[in-house]
Design a protein around this nucleic acid. Structure first.
Length: 928
DNA sequence: CAAAGCGGTGGT
DNA sequence: ACCACCGC
């Protein structure tokens, strides 16, 4: 239950997992909100107070100007004077992320319409397992109901290839069929190829998904498409704004050669540092040499197994359906002088936090019909100059801000040895530098016992309000809890998997397969390790033994060779693509190499535990307290009357410099004064006249407080709900005014329109029938369009295809026309062959292309190439009636050379009777 | 001074 | 239950 669900290793490469990542999401949200800034360089900032404020998101135009995160607004302005710096809204004196959460949910809703197997990973990221859809589509392709067209793969890249066209070529060429003896290796390769074709087909779906996101939300995103979550995540970063990337299995080894281990999710922190230090490695490729047992002994069983598999491109973690957060919380830091030193201040902030949490909880209750049962309060206090953080969990009995705040305060008090400064009932002994309140342990309403009356009531009303989406969710939950994840269940039984996995590996490496010598070794190595994996090596305890055995057996040879393998820089391109711009320039390798410290001891530096503990009450005591004296305290707290009124008291108290004795004379006072400033909000008007506190911080705080005044929030919030018009361009095709930033996609839209009606029908069908019923869209309407179009085209180069290309060309042309004219203009004064300003010469066609449309232009070439490739693809199905047709891919057009190609002809049953000649890609598959 | 404010997971 | 860590 607690452990993550994993898939069976047998299916290690059978899934199509996608990581959708919104591009500089906060910026996009702000852009959508404020059309006036669209297209400009933007950085979202929070806490304007201190010059510029901290940047938390940077859009691409701004990145191009050298603006990065970790900069202050001012700094950004220096790099980019025209930059727009929208701020994160502030509510209750703290950043409020509501608008981003809602935008994120909008996006997630769209994603969810494609597959229930959606796992939200963060506010702007989600994993999708689209295996099912892919299989369905492949099936459709096999029946001639769907054609993979180049435009389906626009903006798609494949790691290890210049463009998708190249990747497809590779897929189509590769090796030949039963190459003599059905060698296991080639068998395996065949399996890999099939897996990779799934990725390719998956990419077409992902393109639709991203298009839908764009269309329905206006937001752009990037995606990684791979066989597991970790790799999908990694891959998504390779081509960033508004693009998607496939990671073919065979590209993994090379990728790993230059992939700093620390780039892998889960290894980015201290653990990654330890791994690098202990194993004395830096790159993922170097990880493969270590037996699982060794990894386990250094880094725990679980991690060891995970790393062992990860080194081989395997991650068995299932994508689990998770749409809603498991916890809802908020927190705030009180750094430096802002540390909380008075009870009233503490109370104030707890109230603010509790209010936000409560607000969000209520909304959640409304939307999801569930109730949180647990409250966790976390805080850190400075004790003897050391920050000590603690968390306490208590029961959440009501969605009531005051109650929550009171309980939280109580929990803190209860667990702090010396809560108050000596002789004081309001001044804290230990300044608090961080506060957090979070609610979790949700239980569905209606069923759970113990649901508060209030909640019950509310749940009813909310239920009536929106009776949507629950069913599936429930179903999901069930399946998740069950042993086998859907994925596994639904995965096709791979052909003869067990067989080849047993494959004994000879280190000798038959040189039989024609492969480039150099990389071959590595790939070979990689592949062998794969095959060395015994089924069930999921890291289950005892199996380790057997596995380790196989592993070491095979690895022995490697170990002899030792980590001689120095990374070649060839593929470095994958690592720091444009996205690198915003990363610290220092970058992985630099960081990694720079820790000369102890390689031996992994122990973290000794913590000042002792010092700390004396300030914290031992658990037992705490318990006791709770039972006894605490009762009273609780009483007091709930009766706010009893408790001294916040703020005023605090301030007053502090005004008496009594506590300052032990503390820093100035800090104590100033701190509280500034913090208490917000009291004004409570209309309590004047807190004892603010001291002429010169402290900058205090000023800041005060201004924050002012900003809190509700008007701000409401306004911005409301603003969000409606769309403001933005500058438009007239579409040359339909003459309609199109929002500037959507112009291109609008053009794409027209392009799509130019596709056959049938194709569009397919697409819609996909969207609809798919989710509703699982009815295999067959019979539907195989009648017309596509099929006929394809058949009519007849010959190799299907006219329809050519037509597509032509259209594609014409689509691009508006751009190029514009650019060419610009070219003429700017270039007019200079020589003809000089590159016009802001242009570059396309290496493919030699045309001058405006820099800012270069991507598109390249896409054009890619698409064109792709089309060509697709047109040539054909499959030789030895004897199709046989249950085990050896699948062979042949390039019918060029280079076919020795391959025998057997034109699928009328003899083939199935599919549309009309067109048989061309069965692109789809025919790669046996009936899965 | 001070990235801030999230959210999640795994170990104990 | 609490902590430490991870990552956006």
């Amino acid at each position: 239950m607690s452990t993550k669900t994993t898939i069976n290793i047998k299916n290690k490469f059978d899934r199509v997992v996608v990581l959708v990542d919104m591009d500089c999401f906060y910026c996009q949200v702000e852009e959508k909100l404020n059309p006036a800034i669209r297209g400009k360089p933007i950085a979202v900032v929070q806490y304007n107070p201190w010059q510029g404020g901290g940047i938390i998101a940077v859009n691409y135009p701004a990145r191009a100007e050298g603006v990065t995160r970790h900069m202050r607004g001012d700094e950004a302005k220096q790099h980019c004077p025209e930059i727009e710096l929208p701020q994160v809204p502030q509510v209750r004196g703290k950043a409020d992320l509501t608008r981003y959460r809602e935008a994120g949910k909008e996006v997630a809703d769209v994603l969810k319409s494609f597959t229930p197997l959606l796992e939200r990973a963060s506010i702007d990221e989600a994993y999708l397992d689209i295996t099912e859809r892919v299989l369905t589509r492949i099936h459709e392709m096999n029946e001639g109901k769907f054609q993979l067209r180049p435009e389906k793969l626009a903006n798609t890249f494949a790691v290890g290839y210049e463009n998708i066209g190249e990747f497809i070529t590779k897929l189509s060429n590769t090796f030949d069929p039963a190459g003599g003896t059905a060698e296991s290796n080639s068998q395996e390769r065949l399996e890999y190829k099939k897996s990779d074709i799934k990725l390719l087909v998956g990419a077409s779906i992902v393109n639709e998904i991203r298009a839908a996101v764009k269309e329905r939300t206006g937001f752009e995103c990037s995606a990684g498409i791979a066989h597991n979550k970790i790799l999908a995540k990694l891959t998504a970063g390779f081509h960033k704004p508004n693009k998607q990337t496939i990671l073919p299995i065979n590209s993994i080894p090379k990728l790993y050669e230059t992939l700093p281990l620390k780039k892998v999710k889960g290894l980015g922190g201290k653990l990654g540092d330890q791994v690098c230090e202990v194993l004395k490695i830096k790159f993922m490729s170097e990880l493969v040499q270590f037996p699982e047992s060794v990894l386990q002994q250094h880094f725990e069983q679980r991690m060891g197994s995970w790393m062992y598999l990860m080194a081989r491109g395997i991650d068995l973690e299932a994508v689990t359906a998770k749409f809603h957060s498991k916890s809802i919380g908020c927190c705030k830091r009180f750094p430096g002088k802002n540390a909380i030193t008075g009870l009233a201040t503490l109370h104030h902030w707890l109230n603010e936090l509790a209010s936000e949490v409560t607000e969000r909880l209520e909304k959640d209750l409304d939307e999801n019909n569930r109730t949180a049962k647990q409250l966790t309060v976390s805080y850190s206090q400075q004790i003897d100059n050391v920050d000590v953080s603690s968390t306490r969990s208590i029961a959440l009995v009501a969605y009531d801000a005051e109650r929550i705040a009171a309980d939280a305060l109580d929990a803190i008090k209860r667990n702090t040895e010396r809560f108050f400064a000596s002789n004081s009932t309001t001044a804290l002994h230990n300044p608090i530098k961080f506060l957090g309140i979070s609610a979790g342990k949700f239980e569905p309403n209606g069923a759970g016992k113990g649901g508060g009356i209030k909640q019950m009531f509310q749940s009813y009303s909310s239920k009536a309000a929106n009776a949507d989406e629950q069913p599936r969710e429930t179903e999901r939950r069930k399946s998740v809890s069950g042993e086998t994840p859907d994925v596994v269940t639904e995965l096709p039984k791979g052909a003869g998997t067990s067989k080849e996995e047993q494959q004994p590996i000879e280190k000798g490496n038959d040189a039989s397969n024609g492969e480039p010598s150099k990389p071959k070794g590595l790939i070979q190595h990689f592949l062998q390790r794969q095959s060395a994996l015994a089924p069930g090596s999921t890291g289950k305890s005892e199996e380790t033994g057997s596995e380790a055995k196989t592993a070491s057996a095979s690895s022995s040879s490697e170990e002899v060779n030792q980590p001689e393998s120095k990374p070649k820089k060839g593929i470095a391109q994958f690592l720091q693509p444009k996205s690198a711009i915003n990363k610290e320039s220092s970058l992985g390798s630099g960081d990694l190499s720079k820790s000369p410290s102890t390689v031996e001891s992994i122990e973290p530096a000794a913590k000042p535990k002792k010092v700390i503990e004396q300030f914290l009450k031992p658990k037992s005591e705490v318990q006791k307290e709770t039972d006894t004296e605490n009762e009273q305290e609780k009483e007091e707290n709930t009766n706010d009357e009893v408790e001294p009124a916040p703020y005023l008291d605090d301030t007053v108290e502090l005004a008496v410099p009594e506590q300052e004795e032990n503390q820093t004379p100035e800090s104590g006072m100033e701190r509280d004064v500034q913090i208490s400033a917000p009291a004004t909000i409570h209309e309590s008007e004047d807190p004892p006249e603010e001291k002429p506190s010169t402290s900058k911080a205090s000023f800041v705080e005060r201004s924050n407080a002012r900003a809190d005044a509700k008007p701000d929030y409401k306004e911005t919030y409301a603003e969000y709900s409606f769309q403001v018009p933005e500058p438009t361009l007239e579409c040359p095709q339909c003459k309609k005014p199109i929002p500037e930033h959507e112009f291109q996609s609008h053009q794409d839209f027209h392009f799509a329109l130019s596709l056959s009606q049938q194709q569009r029908d397919e697409f819609r069908n996909d969207l609809k029938t798919k989710m509703t019923s699982k009815s295999p869209l067959p019979a539907k309407r195989p009648s017309k369009a596509v099929v006929s179009a394809g058949s009519s085209s007849g010959g190799n180069s299907a006219p329809s295809a050519n037509l597509s290309i032509a259209r594609f060309l014409s689509k691009v042309s508006p751009e190029s026309v514009r650019s060419s004219s610009a070219e003429v203009v700017t270039g007019s004064n200079s020589k003809a062959d000089e590159v016009p300003e802001n242009h570059t010469k396309c290496s493919d066609c030699g045309k001058f292309i405006p820099l800012d449309s270069l991507d598109q232009h390249n896409d054009y070439h890619v698409a064109k190439r792709l089309q060509q490739e697709l047109n040539r693809l054909e499959v030789v199905v030895p004897s199709q009636s046989t249950s085990k047709p050896a699948l062979v891919v042949v390039a019918s057009g060029a280079s076919s050379s020795t391959k025998r190609k057997r034109p699928a002809n009328s003899s083939d049953k199935v599919t549309s009777p009309v067109k048989q000649k061309l069965k692109p890609l789809s025919s790669y598959f046996t009936k899965l």
